[in-house]
């Protein structure tokens, strides 16, 4: 259990700010990609990479490492921003996002980039990977933990609930699944397109411990991570209320920023809002 104090919270929040700047910059350079859902997840991913997870960029396949699975693979830029900041690869490579030959594929590809644990992009499958990793950890009596990040629209995939059932069935207390609950998917509001609500009750009914937090408050995310370590015999779901496009006023809560990259002017505007 790690101590949470003002300076540890501030450090992680600063990492999230840097990541948001990188996300906007790399997407602007790429000219296409998923901006809204990368920004909504930045604080959660920052807390995992810069506070919670036991990982070593020099040994990306170290067998005792904690694992992060970006089940909502379209938010690849948030993962790449974290990996670059952590030192897995030189930050110049961020500018290769989505370009021919780059290891930074439109959706994460574990064959191409060290630090990417799961090849995702087809929604729903990442959570199954996470269950598999959790099972392997139990089989081998390892202490590593597995963290998954899902979209709230992603919860509409049936496989998510098949995996949820399996995780509880096998008592995977080494697994934490975050839901980036930004309320939006491509065709509109999640509750209007195909409601997965109430999300916490569903996970509870499937046998999970459920924590509900503000997904942009790093202290709350860190506290949830600490609490999840105390929960034995079942997996933990952290339902994080978030804002799609968080950090760029003109993108916030707008479905049209799901799969749109900012142009030069918009990048400038976003970066000015993301000054320290």
């Amino acid at each position: 259990m790690k101590e949470i104090n003002d300076s540890s919270v501030a450090l992680v929040a600063e990492k999230a700010r840097i990541m948001r700047r990188d996300i906007v910059t790399m997407l602007g350079e790429a000219g296409s990609g998923h901006t809204g859902g990368s920004l909504s997840a930045a604080d959660i991913v920052a807390c995992l990479y810069f506070w919670e997870m036991n990982i070593d960029p020099d040994k990306p396949r170290w067998e005792d490492r904690d694992r992060f699975v970006l089940s909502k693979g379209h938010a690849a830029p948030v993962l790449y921003a974290a990996l670059a900041e952590k030192g897995f690869f030189p930050r110049e490579e961020l500018m290769g996002l989505r370009k021919l030959g780059s290891p930074l594929q439109g959706h994460p590809d574990r064959k191409k980039l060290a630090g990417v644990e799961a090849s995702t992009g087809s929604l729903g499958q990442g959570i199954s990977w996470s269950v598999g990793m959790g099972l392997a950890g139990k089989m081998d009596k390892k202490n590593f933990r597995v963290y998954a990040l899902l979209g709230d629209g992603e919860l509409q995939e049936g496989i998510v609930w098949e995996a949820a059932m399996a995780a509880a069935h096998y008592k995977l207390d080494n697994l934490v699944a975050f839901v980036d609950n930004n309320g939006l998917q491509i065709d509109g509001r999640v509750d209007e397109v195909m409601s997965p609500l109430p999300i916490p009750d569903k996970f509870r009914a499937f046998g999970w411990e459920v924590l509900e937090i503000d997904g942009h408050d790093c202290r709350q995310i860190m506290e949830a991570l600490n609490q999840a370590r105390t929960i034995k015999g079942k997996p933990t779901a952290v339902i994080a209320r978030t804002i799609k496009g968080k950090g760029c006023s003109f993108m916030e809560n707008r479905a049209e920023w799901h799969g749109t990259a900012p142009n030069k002017e918009q990048v400038e505007k976003a970066l000015s809002e993301l000054e320290a």
Partner: peptide, 29 residues
């Protein structure tokens, strides 16, 4: 459709005939 109506262009049909359009959400099966 399954949450891709703007890309697949079934959104055109959805606009004209909302009662005969069903969005399955992200659930292709």
């Amino acid at each position: 459709d399954a949450d891709l109506s703007k890309s697949t262009k079934t959104a055109d049909f959805a606009r004209e005939f909302p009662d005969r359009f069903i969005n399955a959400g992200i659930a292709e099966q």
